[in-house]
């Protein structure tokens, strides 16, 4: 019971600290902006730990964070293999293939007005659908290996990416287009020097959305069949054995991998679209 009480005190004092920090004169500094959410994160973990121990929550419902960390450190090799199988082989390859082909098709659609008019409504319709549902079909077609996971990822990222690319390529303003015309620029020059750079903020928006979709697609596809390795496989079998500490360990790995992937795209985006109002800061 003491631990529960401790959790309460911990929560309240951390919150008061955060409230003070948020209203302090330094609230706009970078350090405080980083510190406040970090304190909040640690508070959640701490309260979780204290409550699980204090209320003796059974392991099969919620393991304490300390146990998750312990399990993770004992199974680093398994976690790494799962990460390679699901993230590098499945999600990343599918991501690259799906995004590249969507950008390519987007460029093609931009050249052919009739195709664009017909295909774009279909594409926006597809983008709203539960595409993970194609996983059982693609697993059947491409087998249990990483290829089927990559295929699911390709289908999942394709439509959001296509919509963003096409929207981006139409983003250049009337004056910018007229300018190209007064220079008697050919289509290729106008594309390379105007439409493609103008489309970059949109393309990166698509690339960012797609990072999350890729990881989700690769993990969920493994629920429909996989070799005996992979994050989705490990999650579903560990859930079956009620080894929730392992499930949480995989989830932590997935979260870290997902944010790192997203973060890398954001860094590249900052380098390329530094000129866009949203990036100037």
């Amino acid at each position: 019971m003491n631990l529960v009480f401790g959790a309460l005190i911990f929560w309240v004092s951390a919150w008061i600290l955060n409230a003070k920090l948020a209203d302090s004169a330094l609230a706009d500094t970078r350090a405080i902006k980083l510190l406040v959410p970090v304190i909040f994160g640690f508070t959640i973990i701490g309260v979780w730990e204290l409550l699980v121990r204090g209320l003796s929550v059974p392991l099969v419902i919620l393991p304490p964070p300390s146990l998750v960390i312990e399990t993770a450190s004992q199974n680093l090799e398994i976690l790494w293999k799962d990460l390679v199988q699901t993230f590098i082989k499945g999600a990343f390859r599918g991501y690259v293939l799906g995004c590249l082909s969507a950008i390519f098709v987007g460029i093609l659609l931009e050249r052919f007005e009739f195709l664009r008019l017909g295909l774009m409504p279909v594409a926006s319709f597809m983008a709203a659908l539960p595409i993970v549902g194609t996983a059982p079909i693609l697993v059947m077609w491409f087998g249990f290996g990483w290829q089927s996971k990559a295929a699911v990822v390709v289908v999942m990222v394709f439509f959001p990416m296509l919509i963003n690319t096409v929207a981006g390529l139409r983003e250049s303003s009337q004056i910018q287009n007229d300018l190209m015309r007064t220079y008697a620029a050919n289509n290729w020059q106008a594309f390379l020097k105007l439409r493609l750079p103008a489309a970059m903020p949109f393309i990166f928006n698509g690339l960012k959305i797609s990072t999350t979709l890729a990881l989700i697609g690769a993990i969920v596809a493994e629920f429909f069949g996989s070799p005996t390795v992979g994050m989705g496989f490990r999650i579903s079998t560990s859930v079956g054995r009620l080894a929730l500490d392992m499930v949480w360990a995989e989830i932590v790995v997935a979260a870290v991998a997902g944010s790192l992937f997203y973060g890398i795209i954001v860094i590249i985006e900052k380098g390329i679209t530094f000129w866009h109002p949203s990036q100037r800061g």
Binding site: D178, Y183, A184, L194, P197, F274, W275, H276
Partner: peptide, 19 residues
């Protein structure tokens, strides 16, 4: 004339490419 770049054109807005 346009194809031989006979003139320079200045628009209402600067129309500079931000990148």
């Amino acid at each position: 004339a346009r194809e031989s770049r006979a003139y320079g054109y200045v628009f209402q807005a600067p129309g500079l490419y931000p990148w």
